[in-house]
């Protein structure tokens, strides 16, 4: 992955506009957050291969970045994004990493289902 460059990520988001696409959306503070007493709670959520279609998709912020995808009937939102990857055909990977390189948030779009 590479540090986010909005001038690359914005057109990449636009390529998914108004199409039926697959979404991976995730946030986590680590399975051992409470055990290691880094936090009171272990918190995480993910959606893998949610099918969505969005009519407007925007990346904002000065880093870490935010992305909002406006759908006909709702929103997809992620903040804390730091890095992107366009290395796989038909996929845009966005993730937020902490200072130790650990993933804290991910928002990914794909024309094809993500691998299970």
């Amino acid at each position: 992955m590479h540090p986010i460059d909005r001038s690359i990520v914005q057109p990449a988001l636009d390529r998914f506009l108004n199409r039926e696409v697959y979404l991976h959306l995730e946030t986590t503070n680590g399975a051992y957050a409470a055990h290691r007493q880094e936090s009171k709670m272990t918190v995480g959520a993910y959606i893998r291969n949610g099918r969505i279609s969005f009519i407007r998709g925007t990346i904002t912020g000065e880093g870490p970045y935010r992305v909002g995808l406006k759908m006909q009937d709702g929103w997809v939102y992620a903040e804390g994004l730091t890095d992107f990857d366009l290395g796989q055909e038909g996929k845009l990977l966005l993730a937020g990493h902490d200072e130790e390189g650990r993933l804290a948030v991910a928002l990914e779009l794909s024309m094809e289902p993500f691998e299970l």
Partner: peptide, 10 residues
């Protein structure tokens, strides 16, 4: 993902 990270979710 490694430190510095070299893996991604996929």
């Amino acid at each position: 993902m490694g430190n510095p990270f070299f893996a991604n979710r996929e």
